[in-house]
Nucleic acid binder design. Sequence first.
DNA 1: TACCACGATCATTGA
DNA 2: ATCAATGATCGTGGT
Length: 117
Amino acid sequence: MCKLKPLLNKWLEEADSSTGSPTSIDKIAAQGRKRKKRTSIEVSVKGVLETHFLKCPKPAAQEISSLADSLQLEKEVVRVWFCNRRQKEKRMTPPGDPQPHEGFPHNVKADPSCHDL
DNA sequence: TACCACGATCATTGA
DNA sequence: ATCAATGATCGTGGT
């Protein structure tokens, strides 16, 4: 059901745009997805995000909301930013940077509750 | 059932 | 015009 919600939303958006073109439905069937323009994040904002990322690479939705509010951004944008940040880190770190440090398979506490705020 | 994160991938922007 | 960086989206799996 919740999966249909976004789908229905797209339909409604298109329906609103159907300025006399009922055939627009085929477009929705295709993908009816309007990619938001590249939210150009200001350098200052990036700095704040990076700082938070260092503190918590995986903040809960609650932290994201707070952060987004502080930066005057959309939760989605902040969430996506964190996701991309994590991915990028992995993309660069594994190769040519094995992080020479013993004591590897010792970690047992994942510490999912990074309530550090 | 609803939500989150990750991987891959697309698409846009800036150099 | 082309490439690189990076945000936005889709699909999948886990809780």
